[in-house]
């Protein structure tokens, strides 16, 4: 899966997991996920951690990295690519 496909996949997964009432094309990959932007909250953050672990086999190594990793779909995609197991790259 290339980066573009990963971004689209992330949009779809986030919509499904969080039951968001938006379409993938309405989400801008660089927009903030929390507060303004999609308006997600702390419960959603936990859902995103589980989503990354379940779907992409990426475990957030350091909880303090959370705000940076989950800033936007772009930052999530970058983190997944950087931490993907070698076999999936």
């Amino acid at each position: 899966m290339n980066r573009e496909q990963l971004v689209e996949d992330l949009k779809q997964q986030i919509i499904e997991q969080l039951n968001l009432q938006v379409k993938p094309e309405e989400i801008v990959a660089g927009d903030p996920l929390f507060n303004e932007g999609l308006g997600l909250d702390s419960i959603d953050a936990l859902e995103l951690i589980v989503l990354m672990q379940q779907k992409y086999r990426i475990k957030l190594a350091n909880a303090e990295e959370g705000p940076k990793v989950f800033q936007s779909i772009d930052t999530m995609a970058d983190y997944i690519i950087a931490h993907q197991p070698a076999a999936n790259k």
Partner: peptide
């Protein structure tokens, strides 16, 4: 399904 791991919070709450 997840063998008691990686449980999402919303359904539980």
């Amino acid at each position: 399904e997840n063998q008691e791991e990686m449980l999402t919070p919303t359904a539980f709450i």
